[in-house]
Design a protein around this nucleic acid. Structure first.
Lengths: 174, 174
DNA sequence: CGGAGCATGTAATTCGTTACATGATTGT
DNA sequence: ACAATCATGTAACGAATTACATGCTCCG
C-alpha cells in the first residue's frame, strides 16, 4: 500500500472546482497551492490517466488552433463521492504534509457543519501534541545549563512549541 | 539525481555525536527527532551499508550475550567533512521538510559563528516569503466578500502568514 | 520567423512505506 | 517458559524528482 496518494484528492478537488487540463493543474502547483504542496507534470499526466481508467475522471477534447487538441478533465460522480469521503475522513498529524490544511483549502463556506467537526478534531490533536512537547521540554531541559549545551535542540523544541501554540490559536479563531 | 537524501546527513550527525547501532538510530526517529523527520529501520539498514561502502562510515562489532553481535557505526574523516560541508550549505525553503531546522538540531553552541550566518540567511528567506504571502492576500482577497466565498483558501493564507510571522520572530530571538 | 510558453507524454532513478522474515536477549 | 524488545536484514510497491523527448500556438 506504500503511500497515501493525497495528490489524487488534490486533483479531484481542483477539477471539481473547474474542469481543467493537466497543464492547468501543473500550474496550480507553481502558484497558490504550491505554498504547501508540490507536483510535477511528469507525475500529474500519468496519474490523470490512471484516475480516468479507475473511473474517477473523464475528459473531453478541446480544439486549439489548427492541430492541437487539449484534454480537459472533469470529475465523474464516482470521483466526487471519493473526494467527499476523503474530506470527511479524520486527518492524522503528519510532520511531512499537513493533510488538514489541504482539506481546508477545498472547503467553501457551504460545508460549515463539516468544518466545525474538522476543526474540533484538529484542535484536539494539536493540543495533545503541544502538551507532549511541553512535557518533553520540561524533561530534557530542566536547567539552563542543558539549554546552552544543546542549544540547537533546545531552540528546535521551543520552535515546535511556538508553532503548535499558534496552530491551536489559529484553529480557535475559525 | 532524483532526491536530496537528507537522511544521510541526519545519520552522520547522530553518529558524530555518538557511535550507535542501526537499531539505536531507528529509535531516535521515534522519539526526539521524530518531531520533524521520520525513517524506518528498513530504510536505515541498507543506507548504513551504502554509506559504509562509500567510505563515510565504519563499524566495529560489539559482542552481546552468547551469540549476538551488534554493529556499532561511527563516522570516518570523509564522513565528517561531508557532514560539515552540508551544514554550511544554504538551506532553501521547502514546504515538505525544513532543512534549516534539521541543521539547527545538530548545532551545539560552539559553532556560534556559523549559527549567525545560517539564521541571517533563513531570516531573509522567510521575510521574503512573508512579503510574498501578504501580497497574495491583498491580491486575491481584497474584499470581505471574497474572504467568505473561499473561506478555506482564505484561512489557509492567513495561517501561512501567521506561521511565517512567527518563524521570523523566532529567528529574531536567536 | 523566432522565441516564450502551451501541451503531453516516457524513462530512469531514488525515496519512503508496509510487509515479510529471522533470531537473540533480558526480565518476570 | 514466555513476552517484550533488541537487532538486522530483504522484498514489493508506490511516490516523487530529474531528465529526456516532441510538437503546437501565439505574439511581436
Amino acid at each position: 500500500m506504500a503511500q497515501k496518494n493525497r495528490l489524487k484528492y488534490i486533483i479531484l478537488g481542483l477539477l471539481i472546482d473547474r474542469p481543467q487540463t493537466g497543464y492547468d493543474l501543473t500550474k496550480s502547483f507553481d502558484s497558490d497551492i504550491g505554498e504547501f504542496w508540490s507536483a510535477n507534470h511528469s507525475q500529474i499526466y500519468p496519474l490523470l490517466n490512471r484516475m480516468e481508467t479507475a473511473g474517477l475522471l473523464q475528459h473531453d477534447q478541446v480544439q486549439v488552433g489548427e492541430k492541437l487538441v487539449k484534454k480537459r478533465y472533469s470529475v465523474t460522480d464516482t470521483g466526487q463521492q471519493e473526494f467527499f469521503r476523503w474530506l470527511q475522513e479524520p486527518s492524522p498529524l503528519d510532520n511531512a504534509h499537513d493533510e488538514f490544511l489541504l482539506k481546508l483549502y477545498f472547503v467553501k463556506d457551504q460545508h460549515a457543519d463539516l468544518l466545525r467537526v474538522m476543526v474540533t478534531e484538529q484542535l484536539a490533536l494539536h493540543q495533545a501534541k503541544l502538551d507532549n512537547l511541553n512535557a518533553q521540554l520540561a524533561d530534557k531541559f530542566p536547567t539552563t545549563q542543558q539549554q546552552t549545551q544543546s542549544y540547537g535542540h533546545y531552540q528546535l523544541l521551543r520552535h515546535a512549541i511556538l508553532r503548535e501554540r499558534d496552530y491551536v490559536a489559529w484553529l480557535g479563531e475559525i
